[in-house]
Computed example of a mutant assay.
Amino acid sequence: MIPNALILSLIARQSLEAELVDQLSELADYPLFLVSNLRGHNDTHHGLSVAEQVEGTAPLIRMSLFTDEATANRIIDHLRAYFSNAGIRWWRIPVESGLIE
């Protein structure tokens, strides 16, 4: 059990996946996270190919980490410094967890 557990979710361009995985593996106290492939809609066409602009979506990933508040803060601070202007969105959600045996 992790006291004050939360899920930290990051949304980023697919091209950042390998670098984010490397960074998070070193930063997270509990380096278990999930990566999902997504297609995202927004009003920003920066960095999109012509086909993606026509389609109106961009290939994205969502990384979800089960962690604690201190680690989440450390990760967010690191991302701000290391991935400045990368357009990574994040949110965190408090979690209650347990094990049903």
Rank of each mutant, 00 (worst) to 15 (best):
V54A: 06
L99I: 10
M1A: 13
A28V: 08
E55T: 10
L27E: 01
P59M: 06
G47P: 06
I75Y: 04
E26V: 04
L65H: 00
V54Y: 05
A18I: 08
P31E: 01
D22H: 12
N73H: 11
H78D: 00
R89Q: 10
S64T: 14
I93V: 13
L60N: 03
S36Q: 09
S9G: 05
A18C: 07
S25F: 01
W90A: 10
S25T: 15
S15C: 14
N42Q: 05
I75G: 07
D77M: 08
Y82F: 15
T44C: 13
V54Q: 11
P3D: 06
L99E: 01
L8N: 03
G56C: 02
M63V: 12
P59D: 04
L34G: 01
R62A: 10
M1C: 04
S36N: 12
S9H: 04
A72W: 03
T57F: 01
N73V: 14
E69Y: 09
N85C: 08
A51S: 13
A81M: 08
E96W: 00
S84A: 14
T67C: 12
N85Y: 07
H41L: 12
P94M: 03
R62F: 02
A58M: 06
R92D: 01
A72C: 15
L24Q: 06
E19M: 15
P31L: 05
S9M: 09
Y30M: 08
V35T: 11
V50N: 11
I61N: 00
E17F: 01
V54H: 12
E96T: 14
E26C: 05
I2K: 03
E55A: 08
S9P: 02
R39M: 13
Q23N: 10
R39C: 10
R80D: 00
A70E: 09
T67N: 09
H78F: 08
E96F: 01
T57I: 06
N85V: 11
L27M: 05
A86C: 10
V50M: 12
V95C: 08
R74F: 04
N37H: 09
F83V: 02
V54N: 10
L79T: 10
L6I: 09
A72V: 10
I100L: 10
Q14S: 14
L8P: 06
I100E: 03
I11P: 00
S15L: 13
A70S: 15
T44D: 15
A18Q: 13
L16K: 06
I93Y: 07
N42A: 15
A86T: 04
G56N: 06
V95D: 00
R62S: 13
P31Y: 08
E26I: 05
I76G: 03
S64V: 06
L16W: 04
D43H: 11
P31A: 03
H46W: 14
G98H: 00
E96I: 08
V50W: 07
E96C: 07
A51L: 11
R39D: 06
L60R: 09
W91V: 05
P31T: 04
Y82Q: 09
V50G: 07
R74L: 15
